Amino acid sequence: MTVRYDEPNGAARAVNTLFRWLAEAGVSVAGTRALQVRGRKSGKRRTVVVNVLTVDGRDYVVSPRGNTQWARNARVAGAVEVGPRWRRRERRIAEVADDAKTDLLRRYLDRWFWEVKGHVGGLTPRSGDDEIRAVAPTIPVFEMLP
């Protein structure tokens, strides 16, 4: 995997905190959900807000900012918890291979580009397959297994 991490600024952190709080309370904004993962070093549970992409009955989470802390933690833990505080459930995860990301990233961009523009390695919904394949190694994508 190529390493890229588009670290959020203070304003983005504040907005993410608000959306995370809402997701933990069970309020989804445009498909957001709370994702909790155990820290790979501290062992503490960390919660972020993610967009869950469902394709053919399978759920995926994408880290558009690149190799973020939650993506690194999820990769090591092999499992995440998804949902509001009172109804969280554990899901095993598997990282999607780079060559299988093109369609998933295209669907993700079609649905959430308005939210993640500027943080997906220069991709847009109009990006061609070759452009997506070139950036795919910098965007972790995980399938949440049943």
Rank of each mutant, 00 (worst) to 15 (best):
H119C: 01
L53C: 07
L35T: 14
I93T: 01
V55Y: 12
S63M: 08
L109M: 07
R46V: 13
A30S: 14
H119G: 10
V82N: 08
K101F: 10
R88A: 02
E143I: 00
V135M: 12
R75S: 11
A34G: 10
G83Q: 08
L18V: 13
A74Q: 13
W112L: 07
R133Y: 09
R13S: 01
A71T: 09
R92H: 05
G121M: 02
R20N: 14
Y60Q: 08
V37A: 02
L22K: 09
A136T: 10
R13A: 05
V52H: 01
N51Y: 09
R65M: 00
G39Y: 13
F113R: 04
R89N: 03
R46H: 15
R87L: 00
G31F: 00
P146I: 01
P125K: 09
M1F: 08
R107M: 07
V116S: 10
A25V: 13
D99P: 13
P137S: 04
V116F: 08
D103M: 06
P84Q: 04
R4K: 11
D110Q: 06
L145Q: 05
T102G: 09
A94C: 10
G118N: 03
P140T: 02
R20G: 08
R111Y: 03
M144Y: 00
E115L: 11
I132V: 12
D110W: 00
A94G: 13
E143S: 04
R106S: 14
G122L: 10
H119K: 14
T124N: 04
K44M: 13
D99N: 13
R20I: 02
G39K: 15
L145G: 00
R65F: 02
R13V: 05
R45C: 13
T32Q: 05
V15C: 11
F113W: 07
D59L: 09
V82D: 08
A34D: 15
A11H: 11
A23N: 06
I139D: 02
V52T: 08
S127Y: 04
P84Y: 08
V82E: 08
P125F: 12
R20V: 11
R87W: 10
I132Q: 12
L109G: 03
V52P: 04
T68M: 09
S127E: 10
R38E: 05
N73Y: 06
A23K: 06
A134L: 08
V76Y: 02
R106I: 07
E131L: 01
P137Y: 01
I139C: 01
R133L: 09
A23R: 05
V62I: 09
L22W: 06
G121D: 01
K101Q: 01
R91A: 03
F19C: 10
V37T: 07
G122I: 00
S42W: 09
E7G: 10
L123Q: 03
W70T: 09
T102V: 14
N9E: 11
P140F: 04
T17E: 11
G78D: 04
R133I: 01
A97D: 15
R38P: 05
N16P: 02
N51R: 11
T54R: 02
R33Y: 02
A79H: 14
T17W: 11
V76A: 04
N73A: 08
E95P: 01
A94Q: 14
T47I: 07
L104H: 06
R126K: 14
R133V: 04
